[in-house]
């Protein structure tokens, strides 16, 4: 089974790139990669939330503004897509992610994960990659095999056609009622029901998009969202290699 692991933590505690603390943090992630091995299907680190832009739909208008979908202390800092036989296995892997020691991981079972990175090739000069997370209210379209789901799938199909090469990856996740949050405190794994935060919860899924800021704003505005929904566009931290 595929699981989306969303990493949340206090950005104020994140080390600055170039410092020894940052390098130590990176080593922690390298160690996690070695431990998890093939179980890691995908994953990215994100730039701080202040670099985000947000597309909001409402009153028949689409507006793009600077800043994250919601100002929160513990923001999304990155994600993994893990392949694990059960939720227990996913949680046991997640406990070794450095961010989980001080923050938390929200584990969401996935309906679908499409990774087109190989097909798309390297990111062209002037373009950058963004994680486009979908927010808003769940409207039933997140439950597979329902009519609302089928309508939603069609809308996303039309979006994929319109967006073309701008889509690098796409994920559909089960509703937030299937979410589980894990933390590690004093070496103990704490497992609880529900999303990490109802304020910033990801609804339905996300895309990885690429392009210039203007292009990504335009494509991000086309991502299907529910009424009064929003899409947060967050630059991905390119770690090289």
């Amino acid at each position: 089974m595929r699981y989306l692991v969303l990493l949340y933590g206090d950005e104020a505690l994140d080390p600055t790139p170039g410092t020894p603390e940052f390098d130590a943090d990176m080593e922690g992630y390298v160690a996690f990669s070695e431990l998890a091995g093939d179980a890691i299907v995908g994953g990215e680190a994100l730039q701080p939330s202040k670099t985000a832009r947000t597309v909001r739909h409402g009153d028949g208008e689409v507006r793009v503004t600077d800043g994250p979908f919601a100002e929160v202390v513990e923001a999304l800092g990155g994600f993994y897509v893990l392949d694990a036989p059960t939720l227990d296995d996913a949680a046991e892997l997640a406990r070794h992610i450095p961010a989980v020691a001080s923050g938390a991981a929200e584990i969401r079972p996935m309906v679908e994960w499409t990774d087109l990175a190989d097909e798309r090739g390297p990111t062209p000069a002037g373009a950058a990659r963004y994680m486009a997370t979908i927010h808003g209210h769940e409207d039933g379209g997140e439950t597979p095999d329902t009519m609302a789901w089928n309508e939603g799938a069609q809308a996303h199909g039309r979006f994929a056609e319109a967006a073309g090469d701008a889509i690098v990856a796409g994920a559909a996740v089960h509703p937030t009622t299937t979410a589980t949050t894990v933390r590690v405190r004093d070496g103990e794994l704490l497992v609880s029901d529900g999303p990490f935060s109802e304020v910033v919860e990801v609804v339905g899924g996300f895309y990885v998009l690429r392009g210039t800021p203007t292009e990504v704003d335009a494509v991000g505005s086309l991502v299907p969202v529910g009424p009064a929904g929003a899409v947060e566009l967050r630059p991905i931290m390119e770690l090289g290699g």
């Binding site: 939720l87 009622t177 299937t178 979410a179």
Partner: peptide, 24 residues
Amino acid sequence: QRAKIKIRDAGIPLRVPPPELLTE
């Protein structure tokens, strides 16, 4: 109903946990 759906969709296993998880 919601818990049963979560057991199914989130992959909560139907098993006695392995020794390292048992105490917890």
